[in-house]
C-alpha cells in the first residue's frame, strides 16, 4: 500500500494538470527504508511529449545525488498519462528500474476527475496497490 500525505497527492495532480497535454513526471523522496514520501520533486520531462517521458539525465544526476546526501530514496516515481488510463504501459514496465519505488500514474484524460493509482513494478511484473491519503 502507498500511504501519501494529502498535500503531496495534491501537488502531483496539480503538476500533471499543469503540464497537460504533455506527460508530467517527478519524484517523491523520503528517508531511506521508511517507505514514507515526504519531499515533492517535480522533474522536467526531457521529451516534452504527450506520449513519452524521460527525466533529463543531468537533472536526475543532481536530484539523485541530493537524495543520497540527505539519506533519502525515491519512494514514489510518478508520471501522467494524458489520454489513456492510469495503468503502466509496456514502455513503463520495460523502463521500471527502482524495485523499491511505488510507481504512481495519474491520468488527466478527464479534466475534472484525475485518476491516481499506484503500482509496484519488479522484473516485468505489475501489481496494483491501494492508495491511502492521509
Amino acid at each position: 500500500m502507498l500511504t501519501i500525505p494529502r498535500e503531496l497527492y495534491d501537488k502531483v495532480v496539480e503538476h500533471a494538470r499543469k503540464d497537460h497535454p504533455d506527460e508530467a513526471c517527478g519524484v517523491l523522496a523520503g528517508p531511506a527504508g521508511s517507505d514514507r514520501p515526504e519531499r515533492f520533486i517535480p522533474m522536467q520531462n526531457a521529451e516534452r511529449s504527450p506520449t513519452f517521458y524521460r527525466f533529463d539525465s543531468m537533472e536526475q544526476f543532481r536530484v539523485w545525488r541530493d537524495m543520497d546526501d540527505r539519506d533519502e530514496e525515491p519512494v514514489v516515481i510518478y508520471h501522467s498519462h494524458t489520454a489513456t488510463e492510469a495503468y503502466p504501459s509496456r514502455t513503463d514496465i520495460s523502463y521500471a528500474s527502482e524495485p523499491n519505488a511505488h510507481y504512481v500514474l495519474v491520468s488527466t484524460r478527464d479534466e475534472r476527475d484525475a485518476e491516481f493509482r499506484s503500482f509496484r513494478i519488479t522484473g516485468g511484473e505489475v501489481s496494483e496497490e491501494p492508495v491511502q491519503v492521509i
Partner: peptide, 10 residues
C-alpha cells in the same frame, strides 16, 4: 543510474 522514462506510447 537507471534512466527514468516511460509513457503511454508503445
Amino acid at each position: 543510474l537507471p534512466a527514468v522514462a516511460g509513457g503511454a506510447a508503445v
